[in-house]
Amino acid sequence: MVFEKYDHVGAKLGKELMKASTWALLFALFGIGGYIWIRFDWMFSVASWIALAYDCSALILFFSLFYQEIGEGAMVAFLVTAGYSVNDTVIVFDRIRENRGYKKNLSCAELVDLSINETLSRTVLTSMTTLAALLVLYILGGSVIATYSLPMIIGIASGTISSILIAAPVFYLLSQFDRKKRAEGF
């Protein structure tokens, strides 16, 4: 008995799958932002959304520069990147919130800097371990696994960068803006 493989998706079904995947991605991103808003504060939530926008933009740039197909593998990469980035971002934000309660004598800039420094080694080690595993999958996994693992490598690198270099500084800027608005009586 011979089984033939048929993996062609028609234009209508492909369009429906992309639409459903895009909505699922958007709901996941808004759900993540809503969770952070409830768990932390609006400034943390906005900062995490900006970091997630950076991550998604990095993946879109990757797909467009290397003429990669945006299919189910791309959506998996987007969701993994969002989850990984938010996990790192929440760890940094949790440290900021924790230090805010303990170290009241520090300015906001010093508090954010201290919190990033306290979580930096954990973030880098976790990222390097994950990237090493994904790199092995990319090199040894064959072409099917490579289509999933390469965007995830880009996404994990982007998520690590955004949690340290984008989310926390954006939170700092928003907290400065909020403090000025409160001082002015708004």
Rank of each mutant, 00 (worst) to 15 (best):
F44I: 04
F44G: 02
F44C: 00
S45F: 04
S45I: 06
A47Y: 02
A47R: 01
A47P: 07
A47M: 10
S48G: 05
I50E: 01
I50N: 02
A51G: 13
A53S: 14
D55V: 12
D55C: 14
S57W: 09
S57G: 09
S57L: 12
A58L: 04
L59H: 09
L59E: 06
F63T: 01
F63W: 02
S64K: 08
S64E: 07
L65A: 10
L65H: 00
L65F: 11
F66D: 04
Q68P: 02
Q68L: 07
Q68V: 07
E69F: 08
E69H: 05
G71P: 03
E72Y: 10
E72K: 14
G73M: 07
A74W: 03
A74H: 00
V76P: 11
A77E: 06
F78G: 01
L79W: 06
L79G: 00
T81Q: 10
T81Y: 15
A82M: 00
G83Y: 13
G83Q: 13
Y84E: 03
Y84M: 09
Y84A: 08
Y84Q: 04
S85H: 14
V86N: 10
N87Q: 08
N87V: 01
N87M: 07
N87K: 13
N87P: 04
D88I: 07
D88H: 11
T89Y: 01
V90M: 15
V90T: 07
I91L: 13
V92M: 00
F93T: 00
D94W: 03
R95E: 14
R95I: 09
R95K: 14
I96G: 13
R97C: 09
R97Y: 07
E98Y: 14
R100Q: 08
G101L: 13
Y102S: 10
K104S: 09
K104P: 06
N105G: 10
L106E: 06
L106H: 05
S107D: 09
S107P: 02
C108D: 13
C108P: 05
A109P: 03
E110P: 05
L111A: 11
L111V: 05
V112E: 10
D113K: 15
D113Y: 11
L114F: 12
L114Y: 10
S115F: 12
S115K: 04
N117A: 15
N117H: 14
T119Y: 02
L120T: 13
S121K: 13
S121D: 13
R122D: 06
T123P: 07
L125E: 11
T126F: 01
T126A: 09
T126M: 03
S127F: 01
S127H: 00
S127V: 04
S127W: 00
S127N: 11
T129G: 03
T129Y: 06
T130E: 03
A132P: 02
A132G: 15
A132N: 12
A133R: 07
L134S: 01
L134F: 06
L137W: 05
L137A: 11
L137M: 15
L137D: 08
I139W: 12
I139D: 05
L140N: 04
L140F: 15
G141K: 12
G141L: 14
S143M: 07
V144P: 01
V144A: 12
V144S: 14
V144Q: 11
I145L: 14
I145A: 15
A146K: 05
T147G: 15
T147N: 15
Y148F: 14
L150F: 05
I154D: 04
I154M: 14
I154A: 15
I154S: 00
I154R: 03
G155D: 07
I156W: 00
I156T: 14
I156C: 02
S158F: 01
S158I: 11
